[in-house]
Design a protein around this nucleic acid. Sequence first.
DNA 1: TGATGTGAAATGATTCACAGCA
DNA 2: TGCTGTGAATCATTTCACATCA
Lengths: 210, 210
Amino acid sequence: MSNHVPNTTVQRLPVYLRCLVQEQSLRVPVANSVRIAEMAGTNAAQVRKDLSYLGEYGIRGIGYDVDGLVRHLTRWLGLEHVRKAAIVGYGRLGSALLGYGGFQDRGFSLAAVFDTDPEKIGTAAGSGLVVEPLADFAAAVERDALEIVVLTVPASVAQAVTDTVVAAGIKAILNFAPTKLLVPADVAVRQADVAAELQILSFHLSSGGE
Amino acid sequence: MSNHVPNTTVQRLPVYLRCLVQEQSLRVPVANSVRIAEMAGTNAAQVRKDLSYLGEYGIRGIGYDVDGLVRHLTRWLGLEHVRKAAIVGYGRLGSALLGYGGFQDRGFSLAAVFDTDPEKIGTAAGSGLVVEPLADFAAAVERDALEIVVLTVPASVAQAVTDTVVAAGIKAILNFAPTKLLVPADVAVRQADVAAELQILSFHLSSGGE
DNA sequence: TGATGTGAAATGATTCACAGCA
DNA sequence: TGCTGTGAATCATTTCACATCA
């Protein structure tokens, strides 16, 4: 057991979990590192090293017990209980994410939606949710035990909205706005900039595909 | 001038470009590595090293000419001409991305939309586009000079759809489906798995925020 | 003078190769 | 036997520190 898992490893854990859950649904009882690697798109040594940071969960000569490893990964990722997330910014992307049914399966529930536009506040947002004013955010964090904010507001207001949700005690933000957020050191931010991803692809197109 | 730019550097180039375009809009003529670093959320040595892989674009004692560097980054990212992308999968996420106006500014035009659902084919999809059958994809690649596919289909059909678009000559795919895509070595794929991002945030929440 | 550009050093990640164990 | 777990080696990236030059 170790107390430091490298960042690169952390980013692969959700992939491993997804692959193992798939094996589980196929009733495969055991998976070895070669199998996990080919499903996850990496190599066997990487899989073994990554998993060894978490503990000794494999069986020599056999592989990894799928159910057991799913349980361990779920625990390491903090997904034993469903985490509540809030959509902040009820635009097209916010409503698309709300409508996407794939989060429940993977440990998350979108439990509230916020906006500042008076036109939007009070409207029904699917899943029985109603768009609430951002001014009520802090109260809602208490009420719904919100832990994660999915930020789908325009870049121009992203920092101000971030300051509001951080003041309300939020420690994890998935930011779809194309802007760097300044947050205290104990707040985790992941950037999800779709246009930047396209630009990276464009680079690869330009450099002859190698 | 170099002929190999590290992957980690490539991933930061869009961030630098975004920051410099912002400086441009503020009529700032010159930016030094310290300034770029604080906007981009990195450090000055990193900025200088990254930019030095592309060439010698700075002026010693002064910094980087903003307009000039914007031009160079645009060229390195292959963004001198607008790249045409297709949305494949006209569900909630596909339609949200189509409705998002922020791509044009950053070098992309969403030029076509495809689906296999007969209910959706033929319906208007905003921006004057009509949802086309995936069977017509290869013809549309020719017609519209499509270069990039944004894949917003369910995971269960993602590989089959990928095989179709790759057969039509597509070399760059942004995959929103939570599944590994098998593609030939000359096809670039970027993964955009929102639930995986949330799981990474969950890990950070669990490990006490350090 | 005050910045860049860059070798060299330090750090971090991946891969190798094999000991150790079911 | 056939796999995992893991030190050691390799490779990649980041950071340092300073020569260089407008």
